[in-house]
Write a protein that binds this DNA or RNA. Structure first.
Lengths: 206, 206
DNA sequence: TATTTACGTTACGATACGTTTCATAATGAG
DNA sequence: CTCATTATGAAACGTATCGTAACGTAAATA
């Protein structure tokens, strides 16, 4: 009788895990990330704030990095209701605005930093960035591929490169901080990319 | 007689600082960054590898972060001799290739990570990123503004936004690692941006 | 009831930070 | 030459943190 069998047959013997403790830990971690930033988060501090023992934290997560990622994912940003009806360019712009609203925040920067600081090849980092990046990137992809099928744009340069051109500058300014993010910046990005890929180039933007 | 006066009048009394120690420290730090990465560099390890005392390190630099930045700056990447004669687009492409050669390395990623992990508002971080970013960014700016003065491109979207579109995707892939950097990627970036800003749009690229 | 698993507290050994103390070294001034 | 000064590396210090072990108690199942 393996453990899997055991679990499927009846509840485990012994004390059950405390969901209240788990939630308190995730909340405490998130608060510390917002107040002190990624570099100052310690398991000790989280344990103290959540009023739990360190062993409890280590029962759920292997290290601080894993806890941090879990904390961000446990408190997901609000998804935007995407309007499927409008023009592709307008939808891309709206989505960019939503991305800026979501990431031009303390939280956004800490998320980006967490992603950057992780070993890119680790399964943990892959899973995290998939979760963080997937929604907006897939929306962008969907907008662009639909526009392509309507003959409005060409994606010759490769959809992945185009998506990077759209989203990377946000991330870049978020992390490097050499210039602020702004709606104007977001519009500039969308304008540049759209001008490049649209099949009927429109010079009236100049 | 202030310290500045003192220094300008005659050599300081007492034992002079050891340039050999300073160089050994910077080299050791750089080696550890290349082998273990930013997150694993400790002052203790640098001191041991450089065969110096910790107080010696702290006499020169206030903390590990400052030392890391100094180590990267002490070993600058080779500057590319820029050919002023070619077409702007080709020069931009060549510069992008050089940027990829320089940054698609262990060192490049550690530099980017160092920049990202620093508090963007600190004077130290500002100075560091200025040093790291200034050369390639100013070259790109120069290429584009010359092309603009020749009536080849328009920079309506703002030169800063355009420069971010060119360089951010490199940084993004370098840090996030969701897809590799490549010459093809670099060409894709330059193509997309060029198509967007050039005044005579050329459709033969599609 | 006994057994099992989870809990928080406490303690542990290891590592690292930034600083102090110390003996020695390396200079310039008198 | 002596003396004063500054730098050096080794050693030590107090503090913080990591990840884990030990412990008494709690909360469940059989």
């Amino acid at each position: 009788m393996s453990q899997a069998d055991f679990e499927s047959k009846s509840p485990r013997p012994g004390r059950p895990r405390s969901e209240a403790a788990r939630i308190a830990i995730l909340r405490a971690a998130h608060q510390i990330l917002m107040e002190d930033g990624l570099g100052r988060l310690t398991v000790e501090a989280v344990a103290e704030r959540a009023r739990v023992g360190k062993p409890t934290i280590y029962r759920y997560w292997r290290n601080a990095q894993e806890l941090v990622m879990a904390a961000f994912l446990a408190d997901p940003a609000p998804a935007q209701a995407m309007d499927d009806a409008g023009a592709a360019r307008g939808r891309l712009q709206a989505q960019m605005n939503h991305l800026l609203d979501t990431f031009d925040t303390v939280r956004g920067r800490q998320i980006a930093l967490t992603m950057a600081a992780a070993d890119p090849e680790s399964e943990l980092a892959k899973a995290f960035r998939t979760r963080i990046m997937l929604q907006c990137r897939e929306e962008g992809r969907s907008i662009l591929t639909e526009a392509e099928s309507r003959g409005e744009v060409h994606l010759t340069a490769g959809i992945e490169t185009i998506l990077d051109l759209i989203y990377a500058p946000v991330f870049y300014r978020l992390l490097v901080g050499h210039k602020p993010l702004s709606r104007e910046f977001g519009s500039g990005i969308v304008d540049l990319v759209w001008t490049s890929i649209c099949i009927r180039p429109s010079r009236e933007i100049s």
